[in-house]
């Protein structure tokens, strides 16, 4: 087997596997007959279908009926009435907008920051393992504790952040009280929490890179920047794409940290859609509208995920 491969030859070698079906030619190998593929897929499919099918049917069903609080079952069929209510609910539309703003800013920030830190953590020295482990902590702190600690840090009266700003003559800044800054704070807190995930995945991706490629690049006299741009990033595209998509699906469902840090306020400034649905359902007991909203969010998420999925495949194939 050749020890030195260029990235482009690697990409070509891995190429055929990407086709989504159709007969694939592979060099003289009887690569798994389709039956084996299904055997590999069965545990995941059984688990997902078994656990999700009924809840999804239930949710759609509730969204089309009058919810009966005395049994927690769908009651009379009301057609699209719940959807009408929801579409005309300015609060719901506002929460979708808020979610959009949050996602568009938070996701790229976390991804770029995460990969940058992963590169820094990739330099070999003795403390690297400890730093990598410590970097997991923000993800592990319970949201309600994390939210509370951040509220303390950002408080204008007793908060350390404003105290430090005060020493250089700035502030006090209403980090959570001001509608715009509240969104900034939420993004900061969420990025603090989830950038470590990107670091975790990116580190593994960087580590899995074959070093022979680098030797080849080095012997070709490529600069660090050229190596990064033409070797590392193209090889990392699948991992970057996967990290982005996983983070996207996590971020869409975020509500715990918003609940703990800002309660969605002031007004609706940080009222992300899953928080809105949670409060409608669990606090307001409006399970009919909550289910309609959940269904709408599910459909929107699936559509966007589909495009992201296509985009990631396009990017993977480009390099």
């Amino acid at each position: 087997m050749s020890a030195v491969r260029t990235p482009s030859s690697r990409a070509r070698a891995a190429g055929p596997a990407r086709g989504s079906g159709g007969p694939l030619r592979r060099r003289g190998l009887r690569l798994g007959e389709p039956g084996t593929a299904w055997v590999f897929l069965t545990p995941a499919i059984v688990l997902l279908a078994g656990m999700l099918l009924y809840p999804i049917i239930y949710t759609v069903w509730v969204s089309l009926s009058d919810f009966d609080l005395s049994t927690f079952q769908p009651g009379d069929w009301v057609g699209l009435k719940n959807y009408e209510t929801v579409i005309n609910d300015p609060g719901f539309l506002e929460s979708l907008k808020v979610t959009g703003i949050y996602l568009v800013i938070a996701l790229p920030v976390q991804l770029v920051l995460g990969f940058a830190i992963a590169f820094l953590l990739n330099v070999e020295w003795r403390g690297r393992g400890v730093l990598r482990a410590l970097f997991l902590i923000p993800m592990v702190v319970a949201p309600v504790v994390a939210g509370g600690v951040w509220r303390m840090l950002l408080d204008p009266l007793w908060g350390v952040v404003n105290y430090a700003l005060g020493l250089v003559g700035v502030g006090p800044v209403e980090w959570i009280g001001d509608p715009t800054l509240a969104m900034v704070s939420l993004i900061v807190i969420d990025s603090w929490r989830w950038t470590p995930f990107v670091v975790l995945v990116a580190s593994a991706g960087i580590m899995a890179l074959p070093s022979d490629v680098y030797e080849a690049a080095k012997s070709d006299g490529a600069s660090r920047w050229q190596t990064l741009r033409h070797v590392t990033v193209p090889l990392l595209v699948p991992v970057i794409a996967a990290a982005f998509i996983v983070r996207w699906l996590g971020a869409v469902k975020m509500f715990d940290i918003a609940l703990a840090a800002t309660k969605g306020g002031p007004g609706q400034a940080t009222d992300v859609v899953n928080l809105y649905i949670y409060e409608k359902g669990f606090r307001g007991l409006e399970f009919g509208s909550a289910s309609s909203m959940a269904t709408i969010v599910l459909v929107i998420t699936m559509i966007i995920t589909y495009f992201l999925f296509r985009l990631s495949r396009y990017l993977e194939n480009r390099w």
Binding site: S20, G21, P23, L24, L31, G32, E33, P34, T36, A37, W38, F40, L41, A44, I45, L48, L52, P55, I56, T59, I245, L249, V252, K253, N274, I277, Y278, G281, F282, A290, S291, M293, A294, T295, V297, L298, T301, M302, T305, Y306, F309, R313
Partner: peptide, 23 residues
């Protein structure tokens, strides 16, 4: 592995994560 609809399957598995937890 060679299978029909691998892409669709991957998409479906992924999309199952899109259901809001509250639902």
């Amino acid at each position: 592995m060679r299978m029909r609809g691998a892409g669709v399957m991957a998409g479906v598995i992924l999309a199952s994560r899109a259901v809001p937890p509250i639902a």
